[in-house]
Structures are given as structure tokens and as C-alpha cells.
């Protein structure tokens, strides 16, 4: 795997208009996804333990 920074700068050069940097967005939604996963498994664990 290439380091991510390379990926982005390459893209920005090749295709400056298309994939603008949305790194913050990606991290934000992944945090959101982690929240969903953790919460769901907590309640699932309650369901199993009861």
C-alpha cells in the first residue's frame, strides 16, 4: 500500500477538479460509523446476556 498522502497529491495533480480533498469528511463519517458499531454491539451484548 502506498502512503495516503501520495495518493491524494497524485490525484490532485491528475484530476484537480474531481476528487477534492475530503479527508476530514472521511474521518468524520468513519467516527460516526464506529459509534454505530459500538452502540449496536453493546445492546446486542445486553440481548445475549439476558
Amino acid at each position: 500500500m502506498k502512503p495516503e498522502r501520495d495518493n491524494i497529491s497524485r490525484e490532485t495533480m491528475v484530476n484537480p477538479k474531481k476528487d477534492n480533498t475530503l479527508k476530514g469528511t472521511l474521518i468524520s463519517v468513519l467516527l460516526l460509523g464506529a459509534f454505530i458499531l459500538i452502540s449496536w454491539f453493546i445492546v446486542f451484548a445486553i440481548f445475549i446476556s439476558r
Binding site: L32, F35, I36, S39, W40, V43, F44, I46, F47, R50
Partner: peptide, 20 residues
Amino acid sequence: FIPAGTGGIINASHQMNQVI
């Protein structure tokens, strides 16, 4: 909507619905 939507996913989870 982050906790709200997450709660919704839990509510709709078939047998897990019995918990809540």
C-alpha cells in the same frame, strides 16, 4: 441524529427489539 439514527438501527434489529 447520530445517536438518534443509531438507536433506530438497534430498534429495528429483529429479535433485539425485545430488549427495548
